[in-house]
Amino acid sequence: MADPRDLLPSEQPLQLLDPSGKPVDDPALPLPGTDRLLAAYTALVIGRRVNDQAGALVRQGRLAVYPSSHGQEACQVGAALALAEGDWLFPTYRDTVSAVARGVDPVQVLTLLKGDWHAGYDPYEHRVAPQATPLATQLLHAVGVAHAARLRGEDTVVMALCGDGATSEGDFHEALNFAAVFKTPVVFFVQNNEYAISVPLARQSAAPSLAHKGIGYGVNGERVDGNDTPAVLAVLDRAVAAARAGEGPQLVEAHTYRMQAHTNADDDTRYRSSEEVDPWVERDPLLRMEAFLRRKRVLTKARAAEIAEKAEAVAAAMREGVSRDTDPDPSELFAHVYAEPTPQLEEQAALLADELSREGN
């Protein structure tokens, strides 16, 4: 039997860059290659612009709600870039940037948050499951997909995203337990942003860290500085490789911070002070990565301008796409709920059609 202590995470979150962007020597982590880091930086810039533009669209009344991942973009980008083309990503409602980094059209991702048609995109096109609003339910779905892939002999890994609040849910326990028993190739990636809406981490868990919870299930746990993009990539690369190699599920906790309110409907000043938030501004993952790349003389002014222009093009497409009015078809409420419509759905669809026809008369 393996030594349970081998499942324990590092005492401190792993790091490759300090908050100022200077490299930190860590023999346990290889620094990703320059091309990959530039791709990650590009995704960070686009992700920050997506967050900012979505916030503006909310204020304009074009989106019903938006849970920003401002300050968590390193986690969002790392989760997407660590996966191979045939892998699956299971995001939460806060993981818009991760879905975009995976290749999904941001306008389609925001369709759900606009209150429009179903998930807004085809999950099979980029292997991105619908964004889950209920806490932790997507973890069970992720385990199911990974288990099915394993039974079919497919070389597939599933990245299951969740926040710290989700680790208090029963679904989190069930997902980890099943995944460990059946050695499903899942990476459970917890973005610990310190708050479950207004509930601080200290009121959620008494564990030394959320990654320590893995040992209770026989799952390997690891911790990483969630605002350090190279470290997030390196840790997730290793976790994905272990899951793909048949070593079973992996649990990774990224220590980050929710810089903005839970959503536009939340007043975060009621439960935290600006003095708490301010130090995290200095740990901004985007500025940290930019400082590192400039120090390496990889990010030139011309290249930075090119990346910014690309991000602006994404924002412009978002404004145009989200602001475009649609003529909804009420019958689509019943489409794609099940592969084969149930008798109850058919009955409800018929009732709605009858009511609409009476209004027309």
Rank of each mutant, 00 (worst) to 15 (best):
M1F: 08
R5C: 00
L8G: 00
Q12H: 11
Q12M: 11
P13C: 05
L16E: 06
D18Q: 10
S20K: 13
P23R: 10
D25P: 00
D25I: 06
D26Q: 12
P27L: 12
A28Q: 14
L29T: 12
L29A: 08
P30G: 12
T34R: 15
L37I: 03
T42N: 07
R48L: 02
R48P: 02
N51K: 00
D52I: 02
Q53P: 00
Q53C: 03
A56S: 06
A56M: 01
Y66E: 00
A80D: 09
A80Q: 05
E85S: 15
D87T: 13
D87Y: 10
S98F: 00
V100A: 13
R102D: 04
Q108Y: 01
T111D: 02
L113T: 02
K114N: 14
K114R: 15
P123K: 07
R127F: 08
V128M: 06
Q131L: 15
T133Q: 10
T133V: 15
H141C: 05
H141E: 11
H141A: 14
A142P: 01
V143P: 00
V145T: 14
A146F: 08
H147P: 00
E154K: 10
V157I: 12
V157F: 04
V157K: 09
A160W: 07
S168K: 00
E169S: 04
H173P: 09
A175P: 07
L176Q: 09
A180C: 12
A180P: 03
F182I: 07
F189S: 04
A196T: 00
R203F: 09
Q204P: 04
A211F: 07
H212A: 13
K213N: 01
G214V: 02
I215Y: 01
V219F: 08
E222A: 15
N227C: 08
P230G: 08
L236E: 08
D237R: 09
A241V: 04
A242M: 08
A242G: 11
A243R: 08
E253P: 11
A254R: 05
M259Y: 11
A261M: 03
H262G: 03
H262V: 07
T263A: 13
T269R: 15
R270S: 14
R272E: 11
V277W: 07
W280I: 10
E282Q: 10
P285R: 12
P285K: 11
M289V: 05
F292L: 08
R294K: 13
K301A: 15
R303A: 07
I307S: 12
V314W: 06
V314A: 09
A315Q: 14
A317E: 15
A317N: 14
M318C: 06
E320K: 15
S323P: 11
D325R: 13
D327R: 14
D327V: 15
S331F: 09
F334L: 10
H336C: 04
Y338L: 09
E346A: 08
E347C: 03
A350L: 13
L351P: 00
A353Q: 13
D354L: 14
E355I: 13
E355S: 12
